[in-house]
Write a protein that binds this DNA or RNA. Structure first.
Lengths: 313, 313
DNA sequence: CCTTTCACG
DNA sequence: CGTGCAAGG
């Protein structure tokens, strides 16, 4: 658009927050995905907004007590031929994980790693479920200050570290923006670089940032909203993209508009008033192996939709 | 039964808690009710366990989202030809009453008096809805110490005071038993006597006591349960029956077993493991005018069922 | 078990 | 709006 061009032509002293790298293009649709490969490795990622609530909805939907279909997360993984499932906002307490595992009916041979919030019960929390046993797993980023909320779980596979993360929300009134940007984002990036020194990294999860104006339905109105502040976007740009990580969805579809989160309020999902907060980022060494990064915007059950990554073998 | 006879023959030093006045008889059924009168005045009373939740259930049931039928409280009043509806445990805040009124669609000409808890939001609370405008209404019993929880609302009608009450539960571990028996019960009885000096009284509501062994499914196992302690039963006996009030249901059916409350836990209602906690009591002067005191045990929507009183004109 | 408030999103 | 928790019953 001419507006964007006009702005870009005039360099300003005022720091410009990360701008779209391409003019706004069409709405992304699953039909734009590349054809499947013969052999691949697939990872699925989903902010479930409460795993017990999701499983309850799955049950109710199956019994016809709900209009819409809600897939069992493992059925979804099977359907997507994913061997790894990353969950965020599981909102479990440690003592609920074994019950949740039962209800999940994790197939024989699968492995699960849970990281529950220790500070606040039923808050945050992440998990990695995988068919293959990881070479190693770890919870947190190795810093007391940041590891009380169950936000990171890492699994080591032969070719890469898989980091599943639920980044702290900057909160109502941006109460936690300073913590988020100046402490969390920095320490987390340092953690990722530490891993990358050993092996390439696949990072997924709810990174709680819509990186550019393409990634949110109402950019102008959300400059002071958690997840779209200039500070959070600049931090994403500097700490992650600047460190060489590739935003797989954006790399594949430079101008496409697509969201992964729609607030429960105001019928946001029906009106597609969404945000792209959930991501797959990979080390640049891994970027050539990314065949397909995609969303499943029609999958219900949470205020976020699942997303998938297909890696060439 | 011979056991009861044997016990009664041997007077003991140990104080016996209120005993059934009659041997346990058959289960009470609505079919035992006397035939209707040509002219009467009818009062309905219901602990709704949250008025907003009840109205939501009514809606859901109407939309077929629930198995069982749940009547709108005013439809129930109409069906029972009651001109007065007493509600307990409405769990409303003052600021929600006008919304609730709208949802209730109170017919033109009806009057409503609400008494919401001021101490704790969404706790306790009582209301009287009536076709006839009361000569006067009042909230509480005129004692600061007891009037913060919205437990009593009184409406004056030409022939009697109608007192609608939700008596304080003695609580888990009988934490509040002392307050209940030694303060509340006494002050409340004094309040009733004060009214009675002016006009006969009809008292209804959740009095939170099963007066005798006939009034609870498992008397032996509940001697230390709130609502069936010897203290609460003795207090009911002394302060209310001893003051001349007549337990209308028991007077009409001396040996019948019937409950008005079934805890939500353990399928208590399906198994009829209940308590008779909700009552109509009348001043002895009014007793001859009581034609019919009855329960509506099949009416769902709360853990208590509604009950009715039919007075001869 | 079920409903309320509350904190968080 | 919806989740999970806590208190109350």
């Amino acid at each position: 658009g001419s507006k964007t061009a006009g702005k870009a032509a005039k360099p300003k002293a005022k720091r410009a927050p990360a701008k779209p790298k391409a003019p706004a293009g069409p709405a992304w649709e699953p039909s734009m995905r590349p054809p499947p490969l013969g052999e691949d490795a697939r990872i699925l990622s989903w902010n479930v907004a409460g795993l017990r609530a999701l499983l309850k909805k799955v049950k109710e939907a199956a019994e016809g007590k709900r209009e819409e279909h809600i897939p069992h997360p493992l059925a979804l993984a099977e359907q997507e031929r994913a061997d790894v499932l990353c969950l965020q906002e599981i909102k479990l307490q440690d003592e609920h994980c074994s019950d949740a595992l039962k209800e999940l009916r994790l197939p024989d041979g699968w492995h699960a790693t849970w990281n529950c919030s220790q500070n606040k019960k039923g808050y945050s929390g992440t998990a990695i479920l995988s068919r293959e046993e990881p070479l190693s797993v770890s919870c947190g980023i190795g810093m007391e200050d940041h590891d009380g909320e169950g936000r990171v779980v890492t699994a080591e596979f032969p070719d890469f570290f898989l980091v599943n993360c639920y980044v702290p929300n900057s909160g109502e009134g941006l109460k936690r923006l300073d913590y988020r940007v100046n402490q969390w984002d920095k320490e987390f990036a340092a953690y990722l670089k530490g891993l990358e020194a050993r092996k390439p990294v696949v990072l997924t999860g709810d990174l709680n940032v819509a990186p550019t104006e393409l990634d949110i339905h109402n950019p102008k109105g959300n400059l002071k909203s958690a997840g779209f502040t200039p500070e959070e976007r600049a931090s994403f740009q500097a700490n992650l993209l600047g460190a060489g990580f590739v935003d797989c969805f954006r790399a594949q579809y430079p101008g496409a508009v697509a969201y992964t989160y729609w607030g429960y309020r105001f019928n946001a999902r029906a009106n597609n008033k969404g945000w792209r907060l959930d991501h797959f980022l990979v080390s640049s060494a891994l970027a050539p192996r990314v065949h397909d990064c995609y969303h499943l915007p029609h999958v219900m059950g949470s205020d976020h939709c699942p997303l998938g990554l297909v890696l060439k073998l």
